[in-house]
């Protein structure tokens, strides 16, 4: 019996080796690069020069604002869509949810460039309105990531509670704020985590839509990488990692929905 357990358990060995080699060690290396100089000596200078430069601080702030704005806008647009679909106000809700996710099967760069060309056609030029165009590109790209988890949560709602609340005399707004909103919190949290961090760290959308007129955290990592400034690139990546860890810690008690792309198949 013990020999059988031994063989089955060891099936995960190649997986474990691969993950240590290509996930854990690279992250350790990033940490190493972030806190060393070109000679390999330990230093906080990278961190100091990151927060000492106004343009870097500005990048982090802009990323934070764009990430937050994108999360809020996607939730505001996506929540009603998910709500109407889950309430069966519309026929064939699952098919329509799939329709919302379908554009994600067209290559991401191609899709983003198509959006830019369309905006250009209707007179919105990314060079002149980099922030507006980047925001449109972000919302366009991340909306499906919001609709799916919200929809999944809402289909599991206990409708008798909602009815009970209105039977007991709550106004529709009260029912929404005090009953529906708390019940859909897991969906909101998973949606937000799938939008906020990826927005801050993306650089393709801001590059293509904003014609390189604005810089997010992702852009600055990419730029340092292009210039061969590994140590600076790594310290920005470490800051990004810290933000992700904070986000994970803050939402660790909320039951989350699956990743969007997982629900599609």
């Amino acid at each position: 019996m013990s020999k059988i357990k031994f063989t089955r358990k060891w099936l995960s060995l190649p997986y474990a080796v691969f993950m240590i080699l290509f996930v854990v060690i690279p992250l350790v290396l990033i940490l190493g690069y972030a806190f060393t100089d070109a000679e390999g000596n330990f230093t906080f200078r990278n961190l100091a020069s990151l927060f000492g430069s106004a343009s870097n601080v500005n990048t982090i702030l802009v990323s934070f604002i764009i990430g937050a704005a994108n999360t809020v806008i996607c939730l505001l647009i996506g929540y009603p869509v998910a709500y109407f679909l889950a309430h069966r106000e519309i026929k064939m809700p699952t098919a329509i949810v799939l329709l919302f996710v379908m554009p994600m099967w067209i290559n991401f760069v191609l899709r983003t460039a198509a959006t830019r060309d369309l905006l250009y056609w209707i007179g919105l030029n990314g060079g002149e309105h980099p922030y507006l165009c980047t925001m449109i590109g972000m919302v366009y790209n991340y909306l499906p990531f919001v609709i799916l988890p919200l929809y999944t949560t809402m289909t599991k709602l206990d409708y008798s509670q909602i009815e009970a609340s209105s039977d007991l005399g709550a106004r529709p707004l009260q029912t929404f704020v005090q009953v529906i909103l708390p019940m859909t919190a897991p969906g909101i949290v998973s949606a937000a985590t799938m939008v906020f961090m990826p927005t801050m760290s993306s650089y393709v959308i801001s590059d293509v839509m904003g014609e390189r007129k604005l810089s997010l955290i992702g852009n600055s990592i990419q730029l340092y990488f292009d210039q061969g400034l590994w140590h600076m690139g790594s310290i920005v990546a470490v800051v990004m990692l810290l933000l992700i860890a904070v986000g994970m810690f803050a939402t660790k008690n909320v039951q989350k929905e699956d990743d969007v792309r997982g629900t599609m198949l």
Partner: peptide, 15 residues
């Protein structure tokens, strides 16, 4: 899954 794709990419490149 949780990591930013650009951080994953940079970490592999550094490796």
């Amino acid at each position: 899954i949780m990591n930013a794709e650009i951080v994953t990419a940079l970490s592999l490149t550094i490796l």
